[in-house]
């Protein structure tokens, strides 16, 4: 009897441990996790519905997580925290766990946007992530959370649709190889510029005759007398420039690893 009790306990424990993994595999997971409490329930549910719809349509999870302070979850940078959350929550769809995660940390208004998996990284290229953040960051900067998250989902859908059509959004110059005609043209122009500077310096040594402009060689030693030497402070001006704190990162693991960016909003 005791043996049966032990076996039952082990079985229950096993089911408890395997449950999240099974949930992930079957798509039973939250796409929107609002720990920071930025959304109303109705808004969260609507976003959850949209995110689930997009994710299942393209086989690539689109997630949003908000937290109070990311350092409570994981040490390191906000980008590292996003990776930890992605791994811990077992996010992503398919065998490669393809997906996109936007993490907001409200303490210092940090964000991180990471993609994972071959399909995830192919759809959300570095340039694509730039396009994405350009779409939703202004709304987040204005604390317009619901509109910002909607823009995030809409733009993600657009990028996934283009990737599915075989034309992922990528920087126009991304396909420029080392021997692209434009690169060769620039090499020639830059090479000619350097060559011209060297040749003109060498040619300059051929000329040694110039009319004198000054007469400093004939200054009387210790003869200069200053009668007025005034330095008056008049005013102070100030200019401010916003520091772009955006950091692009990527982790190894081939095309299926993490890649992403982080910054402030």
């Amino acid at each position: 009897m005791k043996k049966w009790t032990v076996c039952l306990l082990i079985l229950c424990l096993g089911i408890f441990c395997l449950a999240p993994a099974c949930a992930a595999g079957t798509g039973e997971q939250h796409y929107i996790t609002d720990e920071a409490g930025l959304l109303q329930d109705s808004q969260r549910l609507e976003l959850e519905r949209q995110a689930k719809d997009i994710s299942q349509r393209y086989g690539c999870g689109v997630y949003l997580v908000t937290v109070g302070d990311y350092t409570d979850t994981a040490p390191g940078s906000v980008y590292d925290c996003a990776r930890v959350i992605y791994t811990q929550k077992n996010l992503g769809l398919g065998a490669e766990q393809n997906g996109l995660l936007l993490l907001l940390s409200m303490e210092d208004r940090d964000y991180s946007l990471i993609s994972h998996g071959t399909a995830g990284n192919a759809a959300f290229t570095d340039y694509g992530k730039d396009v994405l953040t350009d779409a939703f960051l202004p709304a987040l900067a204005d604390n317009d959370w619901y509109e910002g998250f909607q823009l995030y989902l809409e733009q993600s859908e657009t990028l996934l649709a283009q990737a599915a059509a075989g034309h992922p959004v990528d920087a126009p110059g991304q396909n420029v190889g080392r021997f692209h005609p434009l690169a060769i043209l620039f090499s020639l122009v830059l090479g000619s510029g350097v060559a011209a500077i060297v040749c003109l310096i060498l040619k300059g040594s051929m000329k040694s005759v110039r009319e004198a402009a000054g007469a400093s060689a004939y200054l009387e030693p210790d003869g200069v007398q200053f009668t007025i030497r005034q330095d008056h402070f008049t005013h102070r001006t100030q200019t401010r420039r916003k520091i772009e704190t955006e950091v692009k990162s990527s982790s190894s693991g081939g095309s299926g690893g993490f890649s992403g960016k982080s910054g402030k909003f």
């Binding site: 007025i228 402070f233 100030q238």
Partner: peptide, 18 residues
Amino acid sequence: NYEVTETDHFSVRRAGTV
């Protein structure tokens, strides 16, 4: 998040004989 540049302006005068 800002880099601030403060510029001090001066009125300078030099007079003398050379």
